[in-house]
């Protein structure tokens, strides 16, 4: 299957690959998997406690090109947003931006899942009330 140019770009030059200190108070970590294929993705955020703005985002994905591109794009998109804003990102936005074909939709779902899980973890750590959205993802 041919990948779109944007997928290839993110795949060849993934943005924000890396690790944040999992134990740090201001860091939220989301580790998620796609049962469809067995791929795994970790996405981490560092949130400014005052402004609730995501100042740093890192990911590490062991999976297909679309999953790598989706998570790379996700980190780009959430950086500079508040956590509540970041929760507005939907996997369909990623599908559109990367022109993913139907069989690759689950790869974008993985990225949305990862954002929610990371934010959920951060909220739990910092005693911020869970919204319905993150409560499920962070379980």
């Amino acid at each position: 299957m041919a990948y779109s140019d944007k997928v290839v770009d993110h795949y060849n030059n993934p943005r924000n690959v890396g690790t944040l200190d999992k134990s740090a108070q201001e860091v939220g970590t989301g580790l998620v998997g796609a049962p469809e294929c067995g791929d795994v993705m970790r996405l981490q955020i560092r949130v400014n406690p005052e402004t609730q703005v995501i100042e740093e985002a890192k990911f590490k994905t062991f999976g297909c090109g679309s999953a790598i591109a989706s998570s790379s794009l996700a980190t780009e998109w959430i950086k500079g947003r508040t956590v509540e804003d970041a929760l507005a990102i939907k996997n369909t936005d990623i599908v559109k931006e990367l022109s993913l074909p139907p069989v690759k939709i689950h790869c974008s779902v993985l990225a949305e899942d990862a954002i929610r899980a990371a934010i959920g973890d951060w909220k739990k750590k910092n005693g911020v009330a869970e919204t319905a959205d993150t409560a499920v993802a962070a379980q």
């Binding site: 796609a34 294929c37 779902v109 899942d113």
Partner: peptide
Amino acid sequence: GEEHSGKDRRPH
């Protein structure tokens, strides 16, 4: 597999 990830399925 692939089929249980339809477009409309919300991640959670």
